[in-house]
Design a protein around this nucleic acid. Structure first.
Lengths: 342, 342
DNA sequence: CTGTTAGCGCGTTCAG
DNA sequence: CTGAACGCGCTAACAG
């Protein structure tokens, strides 16, 4: 019966105004809670809005206010661990503040990252959070200066505006290493990534510091390079074990690698943790699900996300310095993989 | 030196026009590739755009075209398995089509879901994808009819416009069950959720059908209710084992529950798969990382996400019926937890 | 307390 | 092929 009601245009503020014989401005006032107006008027307007199902058009509003009430989160790949939790923190914080959030993922591709940035610029987002940015400093700087405030997660950008959220990779790694050292283990190895980037080098720094603190010589030959995955950890560990060098403890770059390494060790007949203790990094859900469960460095991802939006909203509101660094401390989470049974 | 350059307003189309002494219209034409114009003119415009760093204002554009080039994805919780992969599929599809995507998560809260829908309505998004909607049919119907096209994932909505993407839960569950039955197992149990919802009942249907096909009586006392988590699976399995009833095979609602159950069985001294075979559902990454690795029903989440956007873009373009159901078939993934060693 | 007048930046007519 | 006028829906100034 209902005749084809194709894209029926939504009601405008004008429609509401005419519906009750008032001016647009009055409607606008009650919608935005600005200025004083009679309660009875407010009531009438509110019920008219209700009746017509009026929703203020954010596009029009943004056009005049130069504020879109939108922020964006750029991640390399939302399916990778870390990002979903960060995204949740961002979403929650934004939601509470009345902001909507764009999600863009870049597939670790610089061009796509730049492209996303430009598109967001077109949408006039009020601010952007970028996780593990791949673009170079100049591009970032340009975006920050010309388009919108930026919060960086996992990337330090010296001399550039924008706030940086930086999980304490060095301290976390130190925590992990010290934990093994306190267990009396001395033949440690580190399984990291192929190419050193900022995160990797910080983690190795923490590892090395603790080694030296315990008077264990740091041997770069005992820092293995692995592909960033379960498989990568497996391969690296298997290859190392075949060398026959002594090892009683493994510090891994992240949980996936750690679990891969653990699996390889088990397959090679090592008992965990009796023969070999392993500790990961990240505090992923998986770490509790594997058997033996994996000790790890718990990174408070959700609060990283939340902190990131809060900082961003501050930047947007202009109530804060244009740059700064927020450090977030990870915690040691001890599980079976480093617990000698008594 | 650069004097405080606070929110320097971005250049408008007018700025570009004046910069090279042409009219706005000309600029607009080259930006939108409409109408014919001299190549030399196009060149000049393009380089001016480049030089000034001009980005068309999507807000203004959307205001006049009634198209925002934005779609939204609503999920209960982006940190739950499934959603990140779906989100990635959505993002990729949208990106290629020149759309940006809003992500909103609802924490499984109906009010927040409605709120998100309204906010998106305000942003004049061109369409919305909702995963596991919690809102009632009426609210959905209202949104669909008055605001934007909707694609539903994991929710059948009879008699309502909008496209539905429905993974074959029944066939997947049947696949899992049949797999165990073919292994010669007959004392099966099913570990599902507390409260039956659409997905749960479909899965149980597939389970039951296969049981009957193999002349194994279906006993509702052997359908366990668990909280949807690793812990939940663990508890349910532990409680069941304490009852002492015979069991040689477990079909689980999802991978987390399956892994929890597996852990409980191992803790109770059962060997897997020798004493007990377990199969999950979902094809999560974890399933390959646990030991023994978990057989599962692999759901092509990425392509579900991709399919969802494609359908949505079709709806937006109006080139397609206003409703329909797209079924996606999951596949059996055999791993150690159901592989008798020979 | 409420109404009137301007644009915000852009695409779309319609004349040149 | 190009320029001028109009309006998308809304808020910010001013009036009244």
């Amino acid at each position: 019966m209902t005749e084809g009601d194709p894209p029926r245009k939504p009601p405008t503020i004008e429609d509401v105004a005419r519906h009750i014989g008032l001016s647009r401005q009055t409607i606008s006032r009650v919608v935005n809670n600005k200025g004083k107006l009679r309660d009875s008027t407010r009531e009438r307007v509110l019920s008219a809005i209700q009746e017509l199902g009026y929703r203020p058009n954010s596009l029009a509003r943004g056009l005049v206010t130069s504020k879109s009430q939108v922020v964006a989160l750029i991640v390399p790949d939302i399916t990778q661990p870390f990002y979903p939790q960060i995204a949740k923190g961002v979403e929650d914080g934004a939601y509470e503040a009345g902001y909507s959030v764009f999600l863009s993922h870049t597939a670790g591709n610089v061009d796509r990252e730049i492209n996303a940035l430009e598109r967001l610029q077109g949408h006039r987002v009020d601010g952007v959070i970028i996780c593990n940015p791949r673009v170079d400093d100049a591009a970032l700087d340009q975006a920050i200066n010309n388009a919108f405030p930026v919060v960086l997660v996992n990337r330090k950008l010296p001399g550039v505006r924008g706030t940086v959220i930086w999980p304490g990779y060095d301290s976390g790694s130190a925590l992990a290493t010290e934990h093994l050292l306190q267990l009396g283990l001395r033949d440690l190895i580190y399984i990291g990534l192929e190419r050193g980037h900022q995160v990797q080098s910080e983690k190795i720094r923490g590892y090395r510091e603790q080694l030296e603190r315990y008077n264990v010589p740091f041997d770069s030959g005992r820092v293995l390079a692995a592909v960033e995955s379960f498989q990568g950890g497996y391969e690296a560990m298997r290859a190392f074990l075949e060398r026959g060098d002594a090892v009683d403890g493994v510090v891994a770059f992240n949980d996936s690698i750690a679990i891969g390494a653990m699996r390889a060790a088990l397959d090679a007949g090592r008992r965990i943790p009796e023969d070999l203790a392993i500790i990961g990094f990240g505090g992923s859900e998986v770490s509790a699900m594997v058997s033996p469960s994996l000790s790890t460095i718990d990174v408070p991802l959700y609060s990283i996300g939340r902190t990131a939006v809060m900082e961003l909203l501050n930047l947007i509101a202009g109530t804060e310095e244009q740059h700064g660094e927020v450090h977030i401390s990870p915690k040691l989470q001890v599980r079976e993989s480093t617990t000698k049974k008594t």
